[in-house]
Design a binder for these strands. Structure first.
Lengths: 209, 209
DNA sequence: AAGAAATTTTAATGATGGGTAAAGCGTAGT
DNA sequence: ACTACGCTTTACCCATCATTAAAATTTCTT
């Protein structure tokens, strides 16, 4: 009897343990990569550096990912997944479109200050092959379209002042993305507080009311 | 009689002609570099590529700059100089601090859509030696402090709603910098029009008035 | 037109770093 | 204990550049 054949029902079988172990380690590799890329940049991080940070050697990394590029892509994906999760949450909470937009933006800001923030924001598509580059573009565009849609809805339900939704989405995304550039992990302000202050500016504007 | 000894007064002397020629060519190298970096990224642009774009060979480039890094730095500097020029202009035009801030921001947006926009915004300090990195930081900080000062003045003269000047400066800079990421040279909107629309959002906010 | 000076090219050099083959090692299942 | 499997390491390969020495060429001066 091969244990792996009934593995789904028996999480203590050796095969399951080792596959969970494997997934766990793979994540550790990706997380370490994200931190290294954020600290030194993609091109300035060699796989030897990364391996050293993990206390293993280079080929070990290759048993978890196929290439350095895949590593970068996975970091990007983990980051953007957090942002997309914000859209789902906003749908469940309801409220005016502006309130939902702010929920999304708050999630966004927090994601961007996290471990994968750098990869999400600074990843240059030029570094990737066209097929990966295309996937990234799709994901980015999903976020952009989501923001625009919320803004259009806000104009429709009168919770957002009429204006160019495309520009508003770009401006908002830009301000939020930029947080990844200046935020440091041990900042005085918490990610939530940063999000609040940045979003207040967007809601109320600079001119006095 | 050595013409070069009185060159300052005689712009037709051979020495002057050739030094002007040299400066002109150096600028051409820097501009080509800026465009190549923007198109393919710094690390993905080899000096051979760049030389080919200029119809010369690699060592020719080295007769105008000492290293690839210097090239990057020069691109950055040309970009930031345009932004700093905005501060000077704003001082001469006067008006409320908010009006002056918007003048600066408009210059900023236009600079960022120009040839050196990419280098200014995407240049990662990790790519540079500490001495150059420090210079960059100083220049960036100058811009940041300039924005904050204008915002503080605006709060003081009541042309800007009270708030956190640091966050406002970051949010504004982020939205403006982000333009460099999505703007394409043959965009439907002119840089001026983009600036106007982005800045309107900052002045009035998203919430209806 | 001769010679000097600056400019550009040809042709290496050397270091870095992504990627891999093959051998070693530990563990799980029999 | 034995064997098979998967994970990890050692040791290597090789392509890609940044950078440079020295030769060739053009340009300027007299």
């Amino acid at each position: 009897m091969k244990p792996s054949s009934r593995a789904t029902a028996l999480p203590w079988s050796g095969a399951d343990v080792s596959s969970r172990e494997r997934a766990w380690k793979r994540n550790a590799v990706i997380l370490a990569a994200a931190r290294a890329f954020a600290a030194r940049g993609y091109h300035n991080t060699s796989l030897d550096d990364l391996a050293a940070a993990l206390n293993v050697t280079k080929p070990t990394i290759y048993s978890y990912v196929d290439s350095k590029e895949e590593l970068l892509f996975e970091c990007f994906r983990q980051g953007i997944d957090q942002i997309l999760a914000g859209f789902n949450e906003a749908e469940t909470t309801g409220g005016t479109a502006r309130e939902r937009l702010m929920t999304v933006a708050r999630h966004y800001a927090i994601a961007v200050t996290g471990d994968f923030g750098w990869c999400m924001v600074r990843l240059e598509e030029e570094n990737l092959e066209k097929t990966m580059s295309a996937k990234i573009k799709t994901l980015k565009s999903e976020v952009d379209q989501g923001l625009r849609k919320l803004i259009r809805q806000g104009v429709a339900d009168r919770s957002i002042r009429a204006g160019d939704p495309k520009m508003a989405a770009f401006a908002l995304a830009g301000a939020l993305n930029w947080i990844a550039h200046w935020h440091r992990a041990n900042d005085a302000l918490s990610p939530e507080e940063i999000a609040n202050r940045v979003l207040e500016i967007f809601e109320l504007g600079l001119a006095p009311r």
